[in-house]
Write a protein that binds this DNA or RNA. Structure first.
Lengths: 349, 349
DNA sequence: CAAAATTCTTGGAGCGCTCCAAAAAATGGT
DNA sequence: ACCATTTTTTGGAGCGCTCCAAGAATTTTG
């Protein structure tokens, strides 16, 4: 690869002049400029290498997005929530003329990824791993963490998951439902885990504040209707796991209402329901979470606990870009009632 | 920001030793290592700055994705096609442990973006602008261009758009349709442009080979049924423009079949049809393009010219990552018949 | 036509790091 | 105690660039 100096030598000028030809052409005499340009072309020099400049002035002009938990970028792109989040971030990046780096990192390389990412700041998806946060702090770059409790010195944005979960349950108990199943999020790869009532070690408080809050909200909502979450089966599934629906219907056939933690999970249920000829909301009500665009397009359209995912992504990017003193933002949620929920039938299928 | 040298001074060791502490800790005596680590902590040094390393060994470990045409990243993320494409790319990036940079660039900054992007190679969305390609070549990094004719020295991947378009028309004419409307892609911002038959300057051969090929395929398909594309209204709309449907129904009320260039456009039509009480496929048949996941979830599910978008993205990333001699890949398409197309009713609404 | 003003070009310094050959320190063997 | 090994640490070189003060060339002015 030729460098500025090589071109300079070929054209009989100095490094600095060649740099000027490319960066401030108005500073160099037209005739000389042409000579330099010709030399550059002859050598196949395509302009100053950004690496050099980078070291000199130190801005990457990029922000990084690190997927939540231990997910890969592709898993984010697959999930309706993840896509809208990235869309929101990209909106802010577009405005700011910044590159958006989707930073990869498997479980064991996440720390290295944070240390090495070529970015001016980053957005961390939620994580139960406190180590990631200290790792991010060490880098001394502005960053924001999503859906995690991270204390007052750290930028964070989360939704009011508890309130959303309560609202979901109230809606359903108000409709007359008494038999629930909860679809919770499995945070490790693997098949669905079914926690039936009475079993030891139910997955409350697993360390992910996102999940814990919602579960806690479900608990509260159920309690308000004199129901105990301890009597409700909880199924942990990996987001997008297509077998989720089958497992739910097989292990909790008596449920008339299914609470989920994401639209994606709810959609999975809807798909399986179609396969089995189970009617939604006739036989069973399903409620999503997030209020993604997809939730409005399903058949039937999903009742869901909506949040402004795009706005959240955009805000996250802005916080990183603006680099103000740390804030902890809690975004509101709103129950959007559509057609996937209705009163239970007197007799169950 | 403290540097290796600062930490070294504080700990009474050399730059090189500090570097070793962070990169090859096994090389340095435990006791010394601890001293250095303590000094680093005291100074708030969070590890070697990646900028320095970068200049030294020159790999960004990232590939760039530059949106097609003059679109912003957010526009890519919004479109079903764009999302799947990025998903495919991210899949390959995950496997390779590479960062995916979504490179921003408005019309006037695209060249600069290519020149400056901190990537080891890139994927260019289709473009009518040959300048972009030379600009990319100058950078002398592996790159691939999507859906464009770029000659034999350049990596490119495209689908067989002509064949797909022909198949779409055949399907419809086979069903008995004789009255068409074509939804083509407007490549500049702005409202839909309606080209009625007989008007001058119809938008065939607009310079985007993607569009041109499909239009040409439509033409051929129509010709096979003794129909002329010159008699078919063509409406150019910006992808995702919600007014597209209204414009089509208003300006071509006699059409019994609507050909589009993307699922997204077709979905727009479906939405508008619902608003107007127009039945699909009862009153009008609609055919999509791309075969994205969304196309299977609409009501009714879309008949569409399907391609393997995810596979395309993945292949593109692989080509960049592998840096082999240039190839020109043409991917097959397949007409997926679903429920948005049917024989026209005898009498039009 | 020399001096002053202006325009253009130069090359040193330095960005922070890693590599590596060589020096220094520690260890081991006799 | 001494020399040969082995283990640790050192610091120069260099990655490619931009900035900038200073020097060179050119143009303007009196």
């Amino acid at each position: 690869m030729p460098t500025l100096a090589d071109v300079g030598k070929a054209a009989g000028v100095s490094r600095g002049t060649v740099s000027n030809v490319f960066n401030r052409p108005e500073l160099v005499r037209p005739e000389l400029r042409q000579r330099v340009e010709a030399a550059a072309r002859a050598l196949g020099f395509g302009g100053p290498d950004p690496k050099g400049r980078l070291l000199r002035d130190g801005k990457f002009n990029a922000i990084g997005f690190m997927p939540p938990g231990a997910y890969a970028i592709a898993e984010v792109m697959r999930s309706p929530y993840g896509r809208e989040l990235v869309l929101g971030v990209s909106l802010a990046c577009d405005e700011a003329g910044t590159t958006l780096s989707l930073v990869n990192g498997t479980d064991n390389t996440r720390f290295a990824s944070i240390r090495e990412a070529l970015v001016d700041g980053f957005i961390l998806g939620h994580s139960g791993d406190i180590g990631l946060i200290t790792s991010a702090q060490r880098r001394r770059l502005p960053f924001v963490i999503l859906e995690s409790d991270a204390g007052p010195d750290i930028n964070s944005i989360k939704i009011d998951g508890r309130r959303g979960a309560v609202a979901a349950v109230r809606h359903l108990t108000g409709l007359g439902h008494r038999h629930f199943a909860i679809l919770s999020i499995r945070r490790t790869p693997g098949p669905p885990i079914v926690h039936m009532p009475g079993q030891a070690k139910r997955p409350l408080l697993a360390g992910f504040s996102l999940d814990d809050e919602r579960l806690d909200g479900f608990k509260q909502g159920l309690a308000e209707a004199n129901l105990s979450i301890d009597d409700v089966p909880i199924i942990e599934t990996t987001p997008g796991d297509p077998s989720a629906g089958a497992v739910v219907f097989d292990s909790v056939p008596e449920a008339t209402a299914i609470l989920t933690m994401s639209d994606w999970q709810a959609i999975t249920i809807l798909d399986e329901a179609v396969c089995r000829g189970i009617e939604v909301p006739g036989h069973v009500s399903v409620i999503g979470f997030d209020g993604t665009a997809e939730s409005a397009r399903t058949t039937p359209p999903l009742t869901t606990v909506a949040q402004d995912v795009i706005g959240k992504g955009r805000l996250a990017a802005r916080m990183v870009l603006d680099n103000q003193p740390p804030r902890q933002v809690v975004l509101p949620v709103e129950l959007v009632v559509r057609a996937s929920t209705a009163a239970p039938r007197a007799k169950i299928r």
